[in-house]
Structure formats: structure tokens, C-alpha cells
Computed example of a mutant assay.
Amino acid sequence: MSEKRKLAFTKANYKIMIVGVVVLALGFILMTMDTEPYGFGFMGLTLGPIVVMLGFIIQFVAIFHKPKSKSDSE
């Protein structure tokens, strides 16, 4: 039992996930800041959803990121 348990994610994974959550929040905030009625302007229909999609892509990368060296996994 002296062997350490391996966690599913490393510190790098969690850092990337935090960046992804911040980008997601920024995308939703951009969508709410649209001045057009019902959010039918550029920020509500184009810019916000693109930023949200980028946030989900960052989360996908965070889940599948593997450390390159042993020192990165500590």
C-alpha cells in the first residue's frame, strides 16, 4: 500500500479546465451583453456562441491532454 494512487487528471489538466470554464463564462456574458432585442445582434448570435464553442473545445482538450514527462504529472 506504499504505492501512491494515480489521479485521472494532472495539474495541467485542471489548469486547462479552469481556462475553459472562464472562456465559457465569457461567451455567455457576451451573449447577454447584446443590445439588440432578444439578443438578435452580432454579439448574441455570432460572437457569443463562437466563444462558447471555443470554451467547450478547450474543455475537450483538457480532458484528453496527456503529460509529456513524469515531472509534469506531479
Rank of each mutant, 00 (worst) to 15 (best):
V22D: 01
F56P: 02
M33P: 00
L47C: 01
S69N: 15
G20F: 06
N13D: 12
H65L: 11
V22M: 15
F64S: 14
G41Y: 04
K6F: 11
V22G: 05
T10C: 01
A25I: 11
E74C: 09
F42G: 02
I16H: 03
I57W: 02
V51L: 11
D72P: 05
S71M: 04
M1D: 04
M31T: 05
M43W: 07
R5I: 03
A62G: 15
V52H: 01
I63D: 15
L26G: 00
Y38I: 09
G48N: 04
E3Q: 13
G48D: 05
T35I: 07
S69C: 06
M17A: 12
R5F: 12
F56K: 07
K15E: 11
S71N: 10
L54H: 01
A25H: 03
T10N: 00
V61L: 13
N13W: 12
G39V: 02
F56W: 15
S71R: 15
M1Q: 07
L30I: 14
T10A: 07
G39H: 02
T35H: 05
L30D: 03
A62D: 08
I50A: 14
V21F: 03
F40I: 08
D34Y: 03
I16W: 09
V23W: 02
V52N: 06
D72T: 13
F60T: 15
G41C: 08
T10S: 13
D72R: 01
P37Y: 03
V19T: 10
M33H: 00
G44T: 14
Y38V: 07
A25L: 06
S2I: 09
F56I: 15
F60W: 09
F40H: 04
I50E: 10
F9H: 01
K4Q: 06
M53A: 15
V52G: 02
V21K: 01
F64N: 14
K15L: 15
K70C: 06
M17K: 02
G20P: 00
G55Q: 04
E3K: 14
S2M: 09
Y14A: 03
F56M: 08
I50N: 06
N13I: 04
D34C: 10
K4T: 11
F28N: 12
S71E: 14
V21T: 08
V61D: 01
F64V: 15
G20D: 01
S2H: 09
K4S: 08
I18L: 13
Q59H: 12
T32Q: 14
I29Y: 12
A62F: 05
I16S: 02
M1W: 03
L7P: 04
